[in-house]
Design a protein around this nucleic acid. Structure first.
Lengths: 245, 245
DNA sequence: CGAACCCTTGAGTCGGTTCAAAGCAGGTGG
DNA sequence: CCACCTGCTTTGAACCGACTCAAGGGTTCG
C-alpha cells in the first residue's frame, strides 16, 4: 500500500530554507556553506507536518526520497513472519530516515509518527546528482550512512544484553544522549512512545517494562510517571546498564 | 593496541587485479568496467592472508582502510561493559568490513579471523578521492553502505525473536542465503565459528545452541554434526523461523 | 599419549512471559 | 462541569524456557 495517500491530516508547511534549519548540522549540507545549502534546497521536495499515527511510508513502497525529521518522533517497524510487530527504532529531530531503501529500492520499514512531527522530504535522485557535482555533499552522505550503520549495530548490542533492567537502562542512556546532542535536557524528558512500542523495540513485554521502571523508581535512579522521565542518578543508571548494580 | 603488529602468520599474497577478482560484483568497482577496476586497483594497498585467530584490526584503532574479504570468515566483536564478549556479526567472502569506522574515524569492533582468510585492504582516503572523480564508484560506495545498514537492522530483527529455535533457524536461513548468493551450496555447508561465538551472536548460551541443533536433528529438519550443516527440509526450517512449527 | 579445546547432555534455578484484573489519564458528549 | 469511555499503564499469580553449573565424550594437535 502506498503511504502517500495516507498522510491524512498533514499539511504543507511554509518553506524555511535549509540555511536556517535548526538541524542542518546533522543533515547533508553540513559544512557546504551558504552555496551548498542553497543547492540542497533544490533537492527538497516539500516540508510538512505529520499528525500522530500518520504514516510517512509503508514497507515495500517504492523508494524515492529520504526524509529529515525537523521535530517530533517516529518509529520504524514491520511485522515478523509470525505477525508480531517489531519496532526497529525511534527517530527524532535531526535523524534521516528511509536509508534502508537505497539498496533495495523499496522501503524496508513502515514509518509511523508517534507525535506531531515536521518532516523534510529530500528527493534521492536529486541528492545523488548534487553529490556527483559536490564532493562535500557526497562525503556527507557517506558519513551519514556510516553513522546509521553504526547505530544499527549499537541496537543489536543492546538487544544482546540479557536482563530487562540492562536493556532498559541502556536505552534510556542512549535516548538521553541523543536528546542532549540536539540541545535537550539529558536528565528530564518525555518518551513519546507507548510502553508496548518500547517493549517491542527492546524485545520485552510491556508489563516487564513497567516492572523495570518501578524498580528504577524504587531504587532512586529515576522518577518515572507515565511517559515523563527524570533521571536522578545517572551514574547509578550507568551501573545498571553495565550490570554492576 | 594497534592490530597491524598482530598480523602474525600473515603474508602478502600475489597481487591479482580487481578485474579478475571473484567477488568484484559485490565490491566498489561494480559496473565501472575495466577502466574503473584499474582505478580501484590504485586504492588497494595490499592483499594478504590472515591465519585463524589473526586480528585484522582492534576496536579503537584509528580508521584508515576498508577491507574486502576474498575468502574465509571473520567475526566482529567487542566486550560489553560487563566484560562479556559480544559478537556483532560474521563476515564472509564478498563482504566489506571496517565501515563502522568511517564516521567515528576509529574502528568500532575488533575483527578476528575464524579460519584462514584472504583480505584486500582498500585505503579509504584514496577510495574517497576516486569516488569524487568517478560518480559510479561514489554510488557504489553509497549503495554498499546502505546495504550494510540494512544488514545491521536485520540482525536486530533476528535478536528480537523470542525463542532459541526461532533465532537459530533464522540465522541458518540467512547464512545459507548469503552462501548461495556467492555461489555456494545453500543446503550443505560448514559453520566456521565455535558454538560459543554463535551463541554470543544470537544472545544465547552455547548449551542452548547445542540443544536447539539437537531438536532440528530429531525433527528431520537438519543433519548437524559438529560444524557441518545439512539442511534436509528448508521449508520446515522456515516454518520454525516463522514460529509456525 | 596427554592436553586442550569444543561439543553435548542433564538437573535445578531464575527471570520474563502469559493471562487477567484493576487503576489511571485524556478526550468526548451529555 | 461531570460522567463516561477508551486506551494506556500498573500490578499480581502461575507457568515456561533459557541460563547456570557441572560432568562426560569427542577431536585435534603437540
Amino acid at each position: 500500500m502506498l503511504a502517500a495517500n495516507m498522510l491524512h491530516n498533514s499539511n504543507v508547511a511554509s518553506l524555511p530554507l535549509c540555511s536556517s534549519c535548526e538541524v542542518r548540522e546533522l543533515c547533508f549540507g553540513q559544512g557546504t556553506g551558504q552555496a551548498g545549502l542553497r543547492q540542497l534546497d533544490q533537492a527538497v521536495v516539500r516540508r510538512f507536518w505529520l499528525e500522530p499515527d500518520g504514516l510517512l511510508y509503508c514497507i515495500g513502497d517504492p523508494f524515492k526520497s529520504l526524509y529529515a525529521i525537523r521535530s517530533g518522533c517516529l518509529k520504524s517497524s514491520l511485522r515478523n513472519a509470525a505477525g508480531r510487530e517489531q519496532v526497529a527504532g525511534f527517530h527524532i529531530k535531526g535523524d534521516i530516515v528511509g536509508v534502508g531503501g537505497i539498496s533495495t529500492r523499496n522501503y524496508i520499514f513502515t514509518l509511523t509518527a508517534l507525535e506531531r512531527s515536521e518532516i523534510c522530504e529530500i528527493h534521492f535522485d536529486r541528492l545523488e546528482e548534487l553529490a556527483d557535482s559536490n564532493p562535500r555533499v557526497s562525503r556527507n552522505l557517506i558519513e551519514i550512512l556510516a553513522r546509521y550503520q553504526e547505530r544499527g549495530y549499537a541496537v543489536g548490542l543492546l538487544l544482546r544484553e540479557r536482563s530487562a533492567d540492562l536493556r532498559l537502562a541502556g536505552f534510556l542512556l542512549d535516548f538521553s544522549r541523543r536528546l542532549a546532542a540536539r540541545g535537550g535536557d539529558p536528565a528530564s524528558f518525555r518518551l513519546p512512545m507507548p510502553r508496548s512500542d518500547l517493549a517491542s523495540h527492546l524485545a520485552l513485554n510491556a508489563s516487564t517494562i513497567s516492572k523495570a521502571f518501578a524498580r528504577l523508581n524504587r531504587r532512586g535512579i529515576a522518577q518515572v510517571t507515565g511517559r515523563t522521565i527524570k533521571l536522578t542518578n545517572v551514574s547509578g543508571l550507568q551501573a545498571v546498564a553495565a550490570n554492576r548494580a
